[in-house]
């Protein structure tokens, strides 16, 4: 069971099932869940695999969102190209920002990212207002041409595309976490950075690469958001949402493959349902964060994995006893 959920088929089947849920649940909700889970994936990887908690993820989301937005507004009309360009754009920016951020110890990393997020928000809202139009944002509806093969201007098209992207991201991270040496060294950094340094590894490179990968994933999510909403404004970098990515990572289980998906599904679902009853979403999200943090470190998927492991252990332990009774 556990093995299955870590394999490529597991990923495909999970997403196929989720895709079919559109018969029951609103497509808008599912699209948002899928894009958000891509966004949370990077954050979850950083927390669970490197022990780096970034409280500034909206900044990296905004890189991607504005990459696509600016391309569509000023240069081209093809959304597919826009997404591609924005991923490149956020890749380059993350390489620059990362080389500063990963030098810091974990507490400073967290704080600096949040400060960086505020500055990014300010950049897009005020400093570059001439080009970004601040809070009004870039309106792209009239600037997006229908794309060939999958038409991203339709709800169905963007939904399918987001799914395909998610599957690709999941394949990539599955390889990263379960199969590559790089994934293993990341865990070592989390465990004991000093020791790894004494072994002759340059931990800077490992952290830098992980940072770039994780936040470029966030950039991809940002680009998808822009194309999905047909607009982008400064609010995407709003620091008030910074805790959501972290909370979703923790809720689902940081560093697990399916944690971000489960977390996004529950978090967005709960928020949507509850906001019909409570007018002030802050109280609710705040409460949710507190509960998630007090409930434990493993998250839903993490606890489930632990539970499955125990089951397996029991079964292997039970076997010899059985054979003895059988008189073999």
């Amino acid at each position: 069971m556990k093995r299955f959920f870590k394999s490529e088929t597991g990923i495909i089947i999970t997403f196929a099932l989720l895709y079919l849920l559109k018969g029951i649940l609103p497509t808008a909700f599912l699209t948002e869940v899928v894009i958000f889970s891509i966004y949370a994936m990077g954050c979850s990887f950083l927390i669970g695999r490197l022990g780096l908690t970034s409280f500034g993820q909206p900044a990296y989301l905004a890189f991607g969102a504005y990459g696509a937005g600016v391309y569509l507004y000023y240069f081209g009309h093809n959304s597919l190209v826009a997404i591609f360009v924005s991923v490149l754009f956020s890749l380059v920016l993350n390489m620059l920002v990362g080389s500063f951020m990963v030098r810091l110890n974990s507490s400073y990393f967290t704080l600096c990212n949040q400060a960086f997020c505020v500055v990014t928000f300010f950049l897009f809202q005020k400093a570059l207002v001439k080009w970004t139009f601040g809070d009004n944002g870039l309106l792209l509806i009239s600037r997006m041409d229908p794309t060939p093969i999958i038409d991203l201007t339709t709800t169905k098209g963007i939904y399918l595309f987001a799914f395909l992207m998610a599957v690709a991201v999941w394949f990539f991270y599955q390889y990263l976490m379960k199969k590559s040496v790089f994934g293993a060294t990341c865990l070592c950094v989390k465990d004991n950075e000093m020791k790894l340094r004494f072994l002759g590894y340059k931990t800077f490179n490992i952290k830098w690469l992980a940072f770039v990968i994780a936040n470029t994933t966030a950039g991809l999510a940002g680009a998808l958001y822009t194309v999905y909403f047909c607009m982008v404004n400064a609010n995407i970098a709003n620091v008030n949402t910074a805790s959501e990515a972290v909370a979703i990572s923790m809720l689902g289980g940081a560093g697990t493959l399916f944690g971000p998906l489960v977390g996004s599904f529950l978090f967005i679902g709960l928020k949507d349902i509850a906001s019909q009853f409570i007018s002030h979403w802050e109280v609710l999200v705040g409460l949710l964060l507190i509960i998630v943090m007090l409930a434990g470190e493993k998250g839903i998927v993490g606890s489930l994995e632990g539970y499955l492991e125990k089951l397996k252990e029991k079964r292997t332990l039970a076997k010899p006893a059985l054979t003895k009774e059988g008189g073999l």
């Binding site: 022990g51 802050e282 964060l289 507190i290 943090m293 007090l294």
Partner: peptide, 30 residues
């Protein structure tokens, strides 16, 4: 609330107290 995370990594206290902060903002608005 807070005393429960004193022995845990810094991240826990950050998210937890951010939650408290957010709830506080909501209550103030209310």
């Amino acid at each position: 609330i807070n005393k429960r995370v004193y022995s845990k990594p810094v991240m826990f206290s950050m998210i937890l107290t951010f939650g408290v902060n957010l709830m506080g903002v909501g209550l103030i608005k209310y």
